[in-house]
Design a binder for these strands. Sequence first.
DNA 1: ACATAACAGTTTTTT
DNA 2: ACTGTTATGT
Length: 786
Amino acid sequence: MTEPSLSKETNLLDGLNTAQQHAVTVEPGPVLVLAGPGSGKTRVLTSRIAYLMHALDVAPWHIMAVTFTNKAAREMAHRLEALMGERLRGLTVGTFHATCARILRRETRHLLGYAGDFVIFDRDDQLQLVKQALAELDLDEKKFAPARMLHGISSAKNELVTPEKYAASNYISEVTKRVYGVYQELLVSNNAMDFDDLLLNTVLLFDDRPDILQKYQQQYQHVLVDEFQDTNTTQYELLKRLAAPQNNIFVVGDSDQSIYKWRGADFRNINRFRSHYPEAKLVLLEQNYRSTQIILDAAKAVIRHNADRVDKELFTEREDGTPIVVKEAYNETEEAEMVVDTIHDLMLKGYRAGDCAVMYRTNAQSRAVEEVFLRTSMPYKLVGATRFYGRREIRDVVAYLRVIHNPADAVSLNRILNTPPRGIGAKTQQELEDWARKKGLQPAEALVRLATDPDVQHRIGSRAFRVLSDFGELLHAWLTVRDDATVAELLDLVLEQTAYRNYINDGTEEGEERWANVMEFRSVATLAEDAPLSEFLEQVALVSDVDTLSDEENNAVTLLTLHAAKGLEFPVVFITGLEEGILPHSRSMDDMEELAEERRLFYVGLTRAKDHVYLLHTFRRTFFGDASVATPSRFLGDIPIDLVSGGAISQRREESVSRASSWSWDRNRSVPRSGRQSYNRAWNEEYQPSDRRDYTKPQRTAQAGDDVHRGANAGDGDPQTTKAAPNGKHEPQFRTGQRVRHAKFGDGIVIESKVTGTDEEVTVAFKKEGLKKLAASFANLEEIGD
DNA sequence: ACATAACAGTTTTTT
DNA sequence: ACTGTTATGT
């Protein structure tokens, strides 16, 4: 080792404990880091990357670091930036899904059946496809619940099982197998992939094309993985292939924090890793830098009840701390009120609202908390629940953009065909589909044909034809400007020409809010600047709830599920609903493994806390409409009593019953459920740093690691685009995508320009007035800059 | 074709 | 309680 790199190395290791230093500097090859909560694993990962680059002179483009959430990826990139500045160029830091999506995009031409840019289908889209598959197979949705089918399909994909290899051992799996097959065909015909496909297809591609695999193996000579216990079989197989043959694979995980079994994750991958790489170096990170000793002792006592685990010797230098507080509330409203009261007390002691988090097992539990927080003006930010992009209005506008990007997307087309209502009902839709099938066209192509081919042959009724061709004309216009307009401009056109605002904003408060959400989405699109539509849609598809959480968000309490809490930390943690049936969840109580996972979930919640933990449960919990008596969670009993403050549970219960009888009368006052201010804004910030490349800078020449698509879609040379030639009589003066201004109609975009005899006929989409056909000689159109 | 009413299934966790 | 789907009436 040379002198200068040694000194750099020393700097790098400043402030790391012995185990951390060992992990950072261990020689390349397979490395397994078992990292307890709060043991600085992100720090170790980032320092390891820095070490590879500084001490071992590994080029950044030879390094890939994968995480499970964009937020984790972003944080890692931020820290690396702070550590090393611009030497990061070419480093791959991203989620499994985003990283695979990028690979698949680059290799689209090698994917059987996929033409051009595929889109990513989310769960809603998937369910639509499953329903369609069931219909095609003449199976009853009632008997074969689409959600169940989808779960079976997803599990198969997570296990690297294709429809052909799917083992049908009984009737239900026989049906699943067939549905899986049709579902997969439907995905391909929609030119779409679901989340699982991103991983699965990457592995399949690598297995199919060793030459392509080799290309990526050569590029990614060092692979690092965060939250390794959360990998599923497909992800594990992907890593194995990528890391070979050198096997420079550095994984960090903690089996006690494995909480995604239901999603196919298998912490036994940690064991598989050890047997697959017998030479793997093992590093244990056991010092906790986050929590007080009391919190850590409580967490250890809880997790010790799980069988078949290797006990870690977690320790901290933060001695003592305050006892864990366990409280019983009468019902969920009182529970939330207790949270608010406690936060108020803590604020008198110098804590801020932003220091506090309220965690719960199910999203449904957030409602009561939100209502009380609104009523008491306690600021909060909510992670998840009705996700911003899960809202109807957002899904609508995204569906428009998706159809424009990928006309093969029949699921999205279905959604927008009559949204807003434009007279295309079931019957008209059927006529369109029949005609399209007869002509061998996709429905979207058929629409455009109906609108643009004056000699079109059809037997569609005149009324139906009119509404269809009207819509086809709009679609044609959007498709024409697609490659020249920014996402925001496309969105404006769509909103304007469909009068979407009128449709969604019915004058009610809710309508106002819906429109505000659309405008929020618009500003997201504006922030994306000149990112191509494909990339914008991909980012929209791959954001998660935790991603919406930003640290510098204004000072507000964080409300989130225990699942979403993993990887985060807060000075003060409240966990609500510590009741049998909730935590542990009723669906996980009979199975020992699932129960163990519930316990890990509780463990994850506890270990998020730095200073204070409050555990709440209720006497009466309301489920669907009516309330029933709740039993305190068995997990509470796992905590040694000397770590807990407060009297015996039974005594508190009596108190709360008598309190409740005095004031439970007036509690049905409803609180308006609007004003979920913060997370829209947070969502915005998704588009800021690290994940996104800067398109305003001059482009490097394409190299491995680059997304080669930029705006234009594969296989489409756009013959209509003609460069402006202001002189010649027979050359059109306007080109598609040209921005123009009209004295009366305002600003717009040229959709088409045809030379007709001596004049030029220009079709312009005006932002305010919609589509107009104008004669260039009269219209006096003024060209305006981009 | 669309608006309204009735109804069913839903709620575990998510990239 | 809530949402999305289906039946019914205009």
